[in-house]
Amino acid sequence: MLELALVLTTSWPVYSGADPVVVTRAREEADDDLEERVGNAIEVAIISQAKNFIKTLPCQKVVDGIWR
């Protein structure tokens, strides 16, 4: 469980490895520096509405542990 929590909450550059079209569009819409935008797997899942991922028991345990 600790390893899963670490993987789900480790920060990484959000646009790392993104398609160039996505990066170009993000640069047009964003006021900040994209290279400095960081996030984690839980944030990406929430933003992208990955409901099947978020509702898994291991993910729910990690989220519950964060909020307590």
Rank of each mutant, 00 (worst) to 15 (best):
residue 56 T to S: 13
residue 32 D to Q: 02
residue 25 R to P: 01
residue 48 S to V: 12
residue 37 R to T: 03
residue 19 D to M: 09
residue 16 S to Y: 05
residue 22 V to M: 10
residue 57 L to R: 15
residue 23 V to Y: 05
residue 40 N to V: 00
residue 31 D to I: 09
residue 19 D to H: 14
residue 6 L to D: 12
residue 33 D to N: 14
residue 51 K to D: 05
residue 60 Q to E: 14
residue 29 E to N: 08
residue 57 L to H: 14
residue 25 R to I: 10
residue 28 E to G: 00
residue 2 L to N: 15
residue 6 L to E: 11
residue 30 A to C: 11
residue 62 V to P: 02
residue 9 T to W: 06
residue 21 V to L: 08
residue 57 L to M: 15
residue 19 D to W: 06
residue 32 D to Y: 03
residue 36 E to M: 10
residue 65 G to Q: 11
residue 60 Q to R: 15
residue 18 A to W: 06
residue 62 V to S: 00
residue 33 D to K: 05
residue 20 P to Y: 01
residue 26 A to N: 05
residue 18 A to V: 07
residue 61 K to S: 06
residue 48 S to H: 10
residue 50 A to H: 06
residue 40 N to L: 09
residue 46 I to N: 04
residue 55 K to H: 14
residue 35 E to F: 14
residue 39 G to C: 01
residue 10 T to D: 08
residue 49 Q to R: 15
residue 34 L to N: 00
residue 4 L to G: 03
residue 62 V to Y: 03
residue 17 G to M: 03
residue 13 P to D: 02
residue 34 L to P: 01
residue 50 A to K: 09
residue 58 P to A: 02
residue 25 R to V: 09
residue 32 D to H: 01
residue 59 C to R: 07
residue 14 V to D: 03
residue 3 E to Y: 11
residue 59 C to W: 06
residue 3 E to K: 11
residue 67 W to Q: 13
residue 13 P to F: 04
residue 31 D to C: 12
residue 50 A to I: 05
residue 37 R to V: 11
residue 43 E to I: 03
residue 58 P to T: 02
residue 4 L to Q: 10
residue 63 V to H: 03
residue 27 R to T: 06
residue 31 D to T: 15
residue 8 L to N: 10
residue 6 L to K: 12
residue 10 T to H: 10
residue 41 A to G: 05
residue 18 A to M: 09
residue 26 A to V: 05
residue 5 A to I: 04
residue 68 R to E: 15
residue 66 I to E: 08
residue 5 A to K: 09
residue 3 E to A: 08
residue 68 R to L: 14
residue 54 I to L: 15
residue 10 T to L: 05
residue 68 R to K: 15
residue 20 P to C: 07
residue 28 E to T: 04
residue 12 W to E: 14
residue 17 G to T: 06
residue 51 K to R: 07
residue 40 N to Y: 09
residue 49 Q to A: 05
residue 36 E to N: 09
residue 24 T to D: 01
residue 21 V to W: 05
residue 4 L to K: 12
residue 9 T to C: 08
residue 67 W to G: 13
residue 32 D to V: 02
residue 36 E to L: 14
residue 36 E to D: 11
